[in-house]
Simulated scan of single mutants.
Amino acid sequence: MANLKRSSIELVQNLEEVLEGGEVELKKYWTPPFIPWRVAREATELRAELEDLKDLTASKMELEMTDKLAEFVANRIYQGQFSVDDLYDRLHSPDAVATIYQQIQFVSDGQQSQSKNVSQAKKR
């Protein structure tokens, strides 16, 4: 079998319990084994758009870009394994922007974080 790179994202599994003070349970979602190069091109376009917004303050434009990034991660990269609403509701806020950006970067550049490389090696 081919040694294709994969990435993952973790979302809170038991949101209602956590909101009532319960212990967090995370569910890990893996990218599909194959992501077409076309998706990488789209990710690169999104990164370029994001770079153009870096100098702006919080605005409607930034919110729209956030929606675009969330939609891309949920529907193009993870192919509907979870919804955009799941990202907004179940992704831990302090890490959300970095996590979403890492997903886009993984697809556009093929870069995996060190922890994902170790985790992927264990899966083989």
Rank of each mutant, 00 (worst) to 15 (best):
L87C: 06
W37K: 11
T66L: 10
V18K: 09
L26C: 04
R38K: 12
P33S: 08
N117E: 14
A74R: 01
R90C: 14
D109F: 10
Q103M: 11
E16P: 00
P94Y: 05
Q111G: 01
M1Y: 06
S108D: 13
E17Q: 13
L91P: 03
K28I: 14
M65N: 09
S83N: 04
S59G: 07
S7H: 14
S115A: 15
M1E: 09
E23N: 07
L26I: 06
N75E: 15
E71G: 06
R124S: 12
A2S: 14
S59M: 02
Y29M: 04
E64N: 10
F82P: 03
I35S: 04
A43M: 06
Q111S: 03
F72R: 04
E62P: 00
V73D: 04
E64M: 08
A96D: 07
K60P: 01
K123M: 14
P36I: 01
D52C: 04
Y78V: 01
L4G: 12
V97A: 12
R6L: 07
K5H: 11
P33N: 09
A43D: 03
N117H: 03
A48L: 13
V24I: 15
S59P: 02
N14Q: 04
S93N: 03
V12R: 07
S108G: 03
Q103W: 00
E71N: 14
P94W: 07
R38D: 11
E45C: 01
M65G: 00
S7E: 11
V118Q: 08
D109H: 13
R76A: 10
S8W: 11
T57D: 15
M65Y: 02
E45P: 00
V107I: 12
F72W: 07
L50P: 00
V73I: 14
Q102K: 12
A58P: 14
L69W: 01
E25R: 15
A58R: 10
V97G: 08
D85P: 00
I100A: 02
A43C: 07
P33E: 13
D95C: 02
K5G: 05
K122Q: 13
L50C: 05
L19T: 03
T66C: 05
L11E: 05
M65I: 00
K28L: 08
Q112I: 05
R47G: 09
I104Q: 02
N14F: 04
V84I: 12
A40K: 13
A58F: 05
